[in-house]
Design a protein around this nucleic acid. Structure first.
Length: 292
DNA sequence: CGCGCAACCTGTCTGC
DNA sequence: TGCAGACAGGTTGCGC
């Protein structure tokens, strides 16, 4: 599924191709795509605009247009964005939901089997409002540090897996990279987020960053639907340390990887290497237990 | 407020 | 072979 590394891969491929291009037309074939706004409104807002550049925020792809408007797209689970050049083959796409026709004859196709994907247009202020309180820190920015991770996790009782999936804390991590980050950090997915101490925070910080960078380096993970902007598969799925590896030997200790369900999501981990932390007592309470 | 879970969707896989 | 049911998981919204 498209998570931060997949969206970033697409962004890096599309930015040099789309930058400076003008939008001839945005054709929305599935009205669900622009919901709750009517397709004409979204299409009208971008028509004739020039694309100044592509950015990413969490799993959202942002096309900055001249005039200050921003075309925002989210691939959700099965969405794909493929750029088709005039010279390229024009095979008809299944599940085509929207397409952006550009002034050089190329076409950006948004396909999506499950129709969860969406697109909308906002100005800078609208975007800030929209993301306010819902999208947290960018994990590949300088702002993301072990200290900041500690602040986000402090007092949280939710399992680490759920904590990582919460976009309001750290933006961009999905089911795949949450598992990979936790394995790299040697932390059990059911450990309460607030149970981490200094070394755990350091380890998880590094685990998150390394897992995401690996994902980008390998061009994203194609378990089933994901393709990059050229239509090609990524190869991160061949580099998974634990995700989808149920029953296979841990690369570190050989113990069979286990699959459990956390927060309704398949979760893969090594039961031997990933330490399960106990909930930490809140500071300043009762008397400390004598340790035998 | 924090947390867990259902709902939104539909293609694909599994078992009878 | 056909078909019902489970399963996939990003985000929102609701109930406790």
């Amino acid at each position: 599924m498209p998570e931060l590394p997949e969206v970033e891969t697409i962004r890096r491929q599309l930015d040099p191709e789309l930058r400076g291009r003008a939008i001839r037309e945005l054709e929305i074939l599935d009205p669900r795509w622009s919901r709750p706004l009517p397709p004409e409104q979204v299409a009208g807002a971008v028509q004739g605009r020039r694309i100044n550049g592509l950015e990413r925020r969490g799993k959202y792809l942002l096309l900055r247009l001249d005039g200050g408007q921003i075309l925002v797209m989210h691939l959700r689970m099965t969405g794909n964005l493929v750029l088709v050049t005039p010279e390229g083959e024009q095979r008809s796409e299944r599940f085509l939901r929207a397409r952006l026709l550009l002034d050089d004859g190329s076409e950006l196709r948004f396909t999506d089997a499950r129709r969860f994907g969406e697109g909308f247009v906002l100005d800078e202020r609208g975007l800030e409002e929209r993301f306010q309180g819902r999208l947290g820190v960018e994990p590949l920015s300088e702002e993301f540090t072990p200290e900041q991770l500690g602040e986000l996790a402090a007092g949280r009782t939710a399992p680490l897996k759920s904590f990582l999936l919460n976009q309001a804390g750290i933006a961009g991590i999905g089911n795949i990279y949450a598992d990979e980050a936790l394995f790299r950090a040697r932390l059990h997915p059911l450990s309460p987020a607030g149970s981490m101490r200094e070394p755990h925070l350091e380890a998880l910080h590094e685990g998150v960053v390394e897992a995401l960078l690996a994902g980008i380096e390998w061009g994203g993970a194609s378990i089933d639907d994901y393709r990059d902007a050229t239509g090609a598969e990524g190869s991160m799925q061949d580099e998974f340390l634990v995700h989808t590896r149920e029953g296979k030997p841990c690369f570190v200790c050989g113990t069979p990887i286990r699959r459990i369900v956390v927060g309704g999501r398949s979760t893969y981990f090594c039961p031997h290497d990933q330490v399960r932390l106990r909930r930490r007592r809140r500071a300043g309470r009762k008397k400390p237990r004598a340790r035998p």
